[in-house]
Amino acid sequence: MIAPNPRTGLKPPPLAKRPWTATKITGHVLMAFWAISGVYLLTYLLGNLEKPILELALPFLSGEWEVYASDRIATHKFDSFLGRYGDKYISGFLVTLKIVGLSLLFGAALSIPIAAARSSKWKILSRPAYAYVYFFRGTPLLAQTFLIYYGFGSFRPELQSIGLWWFFRDAFYCIIFAFSLNTSAYQAEILRGAVQNISRGQWEGAQALGLSKPVTFFKIILPQALMVALRPYGNEIILMIKGSAIAAIITIYDLMGETRRAYSRTYDFQAYIWAAVIYLMIVETLRRVWDRIEARLTRHLIR
């Protein structure tokens, strides 16, 4: 209740009632659906954690509870999915991080010359760079991976003679190679778009101050361009994490690969649900962290 104004004695008008319209009912029904599925999922998944939780809690329990917990651990047949495959998921997670990290780094290094060639005024440079970018952005990542992993096997004698066969024989190197080429095409476009977005006045102003071209580029243009490119770069990282699931198809035991292995051994559907939970957590964390970083780096800009 809001007290009446002491001087005038007038009460503020009552808050508008929000009746149960169809929209409101639908919203609540849908939220109830999400809440029920969420709770169901949690109990389903946490059932697997009962034993480790009980074991951890045992030293802190006393009396009746201690008897109950030790009894339950001793008599209940725990054959938990997570107990058997938890370590595998962690190692798979690390492999995924390794693949994504390495590909993004190599891709970033490779994207600089491609972006430079793409925006060059010599057609002999810009045409091939355009074709490269168009090819890698226009074809599925899965097809590119197959082309590199299986396709380069066609040239085995030639590759052996120049001593590169060890590289293309290994699925891990192949996937890094394929992903780096793919992401370099996307990153080159991001970089080019960002640099072109900087107005000409910035170049002219630097020129008027007598700065050389490289100094202008690295000290004036690039910092502003990277600010613009921050958001697309974040999206590219997320795309790469999601795309890296493809590595599982060519026998790499990343997060997805371990998931598939666990499922093929147990036929337990929670294998996929755990993977979904982990992927969602990675992507959501990254998105939120990236938003923070962006807000921090662009805090001097008026929005």
Partner: peptide
Amino acid sequence: EPSLKLAANIYTTIFRGLPELLTLFL
């Protein structure tokens, strides 16, 4: 309606965050 908005946002968060391959298997 805030509840409807939230329900829709949960949907997009899930299906934008999952790898397409995993959605397919699910």
